[in-house]
């Protein structure tokens, strides 16, 4: 009786201690990495701007000031105005919303799809595994931007036609906002590009963790599958997944802007940094600040994500340390 009483508490204590140590260690390692700490600041700022941006902007992103078209940066318009007299600074702040929203939603979609497909492949194996691996290989062998351009240009017309039909049938004003078509297409394209990465990562994690000795031992001792999952598989798979999601968030924002840059992204009036850069590119020699504002912003954010991702990788995957 006494052993039975002691065993669970002892077991519990060890599990708790080791878990907190794992994350404490990771946080300590991350905090020791100067570049990662520097990288976190702009990212936090970005999320702050994305949430509260509309309350911070001096002007509305659509407000036009015809007396000050293409104005140079001044105390009135910090980063100047574009050819329609819209304040560039305000548009950049609103653009943060587009970047963050697209990044979060598309990462969430692709993560869910990747989780489902990856765990199906990892657990079921056999035919299902082969099919998932083949699908991911297929998707990954397509250049992402090409895929996005094709998807956008081919599916936009029928989707818009469908929306119009739905509007005529239901008279619901929702179907008149073509903005949703853009968003659906951009999210769809991003999710399609990104899910294979997550699926392969999760499949690989499941395959490798499941064959580890400690899982084998736990199974031999009769630990229920649910417990094995929560105690061993999920905590061990978490590190690489967090690294991947952090990289994926940054990647999704970069891709979203790339789409906009190529003209297949979210269409105006919602400002997008990529679109602002490609618009600014048309008159960069006479009005370089139109280009410089969003470009510098984009550069800061992407570099921050790269540094943070690097720090997270070092902090959460210590086994990858060389030397």
């Amino acid at each position: 009786m006494t052993t039975q009483e002691i065993a669970p508490t002892d077991d519990f204590g060890i599990a708790e201690a080791s878990r907190t140590n794992l994350w404490k260690d990771a946080v300590a390692r991350l905090a020791a990495n100067k570049l990662a700490v520097i990288g976190i600041i702009p990212i936090i700022l970005l999320f702050f701007i994305a949430i509260f941006g509309p309350y911070l902007t001096p002007y509305d992103f659509l407000a036009q000031d015809f007396t000050a078209r293409l104005a140079a940066p001044s105390s009135e318009h910090w980063l100047g105005t574009d050819e329609l007299g819209r304040d560039v600074f305000s548009r950049i702040l609103y653009g943060a919303r587009t970047a963050v929203a697209v990044g979060l939603v598309s990462t969430a979609i692709s993560l869910i799809v990747g989780l489902i497909m990856g765990s199906l492949a990892g657990y079921l194996g056999g035919r299902v595994d082969m099919l998932v691996v083949w699908l991911t290989d297929m998707t990954r062998s397509m250049p992402a931007l090409l895929l996005a351009i094709v998807i956008n240009l081919t599916l936009k017309v029928p989707l818009e036609a469908w929306m119009e039909q739905m509007y005529l049938a239901t008279k619901n004003g929702f179907f008149r906002q073509t903005m949703w078509v853009d968003l659906v297409l951009v999210f769809g394209a991003l999710a399609l590009i990104q899910w294979p990465g997550y699926a392969r990562l999760i499949r690989g994690q499941i395959l490798s963790i499941r064959s580890r000795n400690y899982v084998l031992a736990a199974r031999a001792l009769g630990m229920p599958t649910g417990r094995i999952l929560t105690r061993y598989v999920i905590p061990n798979a978490m590190g690489p997944l967090i690294v991947a999601v952090s990289a994926g968030l940054g990647g999704a924002m970069v891709l979203e802007s790339a789409f906009s840059f190529l003209g297949v992204g979210v269409q105006l009036p919602i400002p997008s940094w990529g679109k602002m850069i490609s618009d600014g590119l048309r008159m960069w020699q006479t009005h370089p600040y139109l280009l410089a504002g969003p470009a510098v912003m984009m550069a800061i954010i992407t570099v921050s994500f790269a540094w943070l991702g690097d720090g997270l990788n070092d902090a959460l995957n210590p086994r990858q340390w060389g030397g």
């Binding site: 802007s257 550069a299 570099v303 790269a306």
Partner: peptide
Amino acid sequence: ALFISGIPSYVVGPMLMV
């Protein structure tokens, strides 16, 4: 290297031109 590669090409190109 991380700095330059981190910035997407559609930002590096125009910024270099300016």
